[in-house]
Design a protein around this nucleic acid. Structure first.
Lengths: 192, 192
DNA sequence: TCGAATGTCTAGCGGTGCTAGGATCGAATC
DNA sequence: GATTCGATCCTAGCACCGCTAGACATTCGA
């Protein structure tokens, strides 16, 4: 048994190595630079080894996306719990979200821009994604306003942040005013 | 002279053909299916001909994006001018924007998701892009609110719409509630 | 009519994601 | 301890990608 366990451990370790390397490479040089050849070379295995862990490049992106979702959920909850009052919580949440997107652009891309082969907006949405959304929702329902479904409000709030994040990073919005935009958005969206 | 003029006409016509074909192919099967080989085959010329019109695939995407921006500006202004009152104008604007994104997903991708090699948020932003933004701005400054720069407000409004558009199309938001999200967003963002 | 210039094509480069099939190595059996 | 035998990994190669050099034809101007 011990032999098989060791093998499984090694295999799991290698899988983590693949994901960490892919993520590092993507953050350094963008996802275009993450080719199966380069990735294989960095982990010091041949290409086909990657395919014994993942169905293909898409699935690697998807796995990085799930990692990112889990991390984002943690950071969102940490930021929210450090703020006092509903409005301050919403602001902290927005800042934390945009901050995460800015600090981890490749991971953010994997989550929302690239095709990671993940399901969404249905029951088969991956748990980490659901949880990241829940981290938003549970801190926003206090500012959703009367007669407004918290889920719907969270969707709008999230979409707006997503728009700010992507357009800012793509150079479509002047970076200097980022904080003012965030404040304007939260002040208008959040009731109270 | 007439000979040269005829040649220039033919050349311009072929350039339009390339763009129309690229756009059509992208809308039908996505931008991944728009390869230089397939595109060349469809226009019934060899690959290198494409490169006598455009620097490369990126520039073709950029050209489609500019076409799209011009069309979007027209549609935004048409929608706004048909509405009465500042708030109704903002709502019509939002609907027209999301409608355009939904009806022309590939063009919208070319404009905002893909790398078309275009400059942004600086003085060298292409004119059609500036104009599309202007179409938003000129219909939104009435609802920006006191003490809020119309430009900043328009950026936030635009980014929010962009987030809704992309997340909806990527299947991240349930399509059914699209109209309710739009109304919630506009009602909150637009003062009056 | 002939040389030059223009236009277009064929062929090919280095790269991509992905996979078939053979070599190698280690574990279990005799 | 030798020998199977199965798991593991790599080499080599497929079809495709964006892009380009150089040959070829065609048309133009003298």
């Amino acid at each position: 048994m011990s032999v098989q366990e060791r093998k499984e451990r090694e295999r799991a370790g290698r899988e983590r190595l693949i994901l960490a390397t892919a993520r590092e490479l993507a953050e350094q040089q963008g996802w275009d630079a993450v080719t199966t050849r380069r990735l294989a070379e960095r982990i010091e295995y041949s290409q086909p080894v990657l395919y014994s862990h993942f169905r293909g490049k898409r699935e690697i992106i998807g796995a990085v996306a799930l990692q990112g979702a889990a991390e984002m959920a943690v950071e969102l909850r940490a930021a929210a719990s450090a703020a006092k009052g509903p409005h301050a919580r919403a602001t902290a949440l927005a800042r934390a979200y945009l901050d995460f997107a800015e600090r981890n652009p490749a991971v953010y891309d994997a989550m929302f821009q690239l095709d990671g082969g993940l399901a969404f907006a249905q029951e088969d949405t991956p748990a980490p994604m659901k949880d990241a959304f829940a981290a938003l929702l549970e801190n926003l329902d206090a500012v959703a306003g009367e007669g407004v479904q918290p889920g719907l409000f969270t969707e709008v709030f999230w979409a707006s942040l997503h728009g700010l994040a992507t357009l800012t990073r793509a150079g479509r919005l002047p970076p200097a005013d980022a904080e003012r935009r965030t404040r304007l958005l939260v002040d208008r969206l959040a009731v109270v």
